[in-house]
Write a protein that binds this DNA or RNA. Structure first.
Lengths: 148, 148
DNA sequence: CGTGGTGGTCAAGCTGCTTGACCATGTAGT
DNA sequence: ACTACATGGTCAAGCAGCTTGACCACCACG
């Protein structure tokens, strides 16, 4: 595969990713959850299973603990999450989603489903499944980083 | 397709996009082009064909003219581009890549090719071609936006 | 030739992130 | 048990990239 083809693939991937982010964000806002930025969505994704500490969140987002702590301050102040004492470690505090946080997460899922629905209309269900499979196999494990 | 599946596809896509951006950036730095951020790469992509005005660049990147102008200042100062008088419009100035800018663009293509090469090793050439085809068909036309 | 629209820059301000310092708690060594 | 170091978290200050607002030079249309 030539360099120019690799670049075309890269550009398309990044364009789709940027567009998808925008659509999810718009969809979340349209459902009444304001004052959030796309980065918060990735924080929610990490908090959703059973909560996380600030340090874990920082590692997941690829930022400093201070930045993650600030982000948590923000979503706590806006009612999407709360800090609880950590059951095992008295130094740590477990950040968990509130009911409103869960509602916001569901709104994001709906918005994502709407965007993916458009892809299904364009490509067909089979091709979208193939896309999902391919991406899942090349997705990295490390922290989630902004596209740029 | 369920919401949770759409979310899994979205997460994989964004993870791959973030990782790819990081790899291209690292590759460019490794080839000796420093002081650049990933956003500059998208500017280069718009400038490459035959140059562009600051306003066009701003529209492409989805930022204000002032931000685009600042970005151009930076890449001009670092020797990657230069401002020329616009052939048709005396108000406008055409921003074009210098030879160093072209060299940097080629470095980015090499880095992208290396990343895509890993995907080929994982998925096989056919599946990567299919991926490219699918993405090209759902890629939007509008401005390129950061993933978040 | 005015009058409004457009390309571009200057200036000031905000926001999200960083680095650096610090405290409280955990953990390992002796 | 006591010391020494590592780790979770916050406070404070600074910086970088973007925004809004104001402004000038030039185009284009009546």
């Amino acid at each position: 595969m030539q360099n120019s083809e690799a670049m075309a693939l890269s550009a398309a991937l990044l364009a789709v990713a940027g567009d998808l982010t925008q659509r999810i964000h718009d969809g979340v806002v349209a459902r009444g959850f304001e004052g959030l930025r796309p980065a918060h969505g990735f924080a929610f994704a990490r908090l959703a299973p059973g909560g996380a500490t600030v340090t874990e969140l920082a590692a997941h987002l690829g930022v400093t603990k201070q930045a993650a702590s600030q982000l948590v301050d923000e979503i706590v102040r806006k009612g999407y999450a709360e800090r609880q004492p950590h059951p095992q470690d008295a130094r740590a505090r477990l950040v968990v989603l509130t009911e409103r946080g869960w509602a916001c997460t569901r709104a994001a899922e709906e918005a994502a489903a709407a965007a993916v629905g458009e892809w299904v209309a364009l490509l067909g269900e089979g091709e979208v499944r193939a896309l999902r499979g391919s991406l899942a196999r090349i997705a990295p494990y490390g922290p989630i980083r902004p596209a740029w």
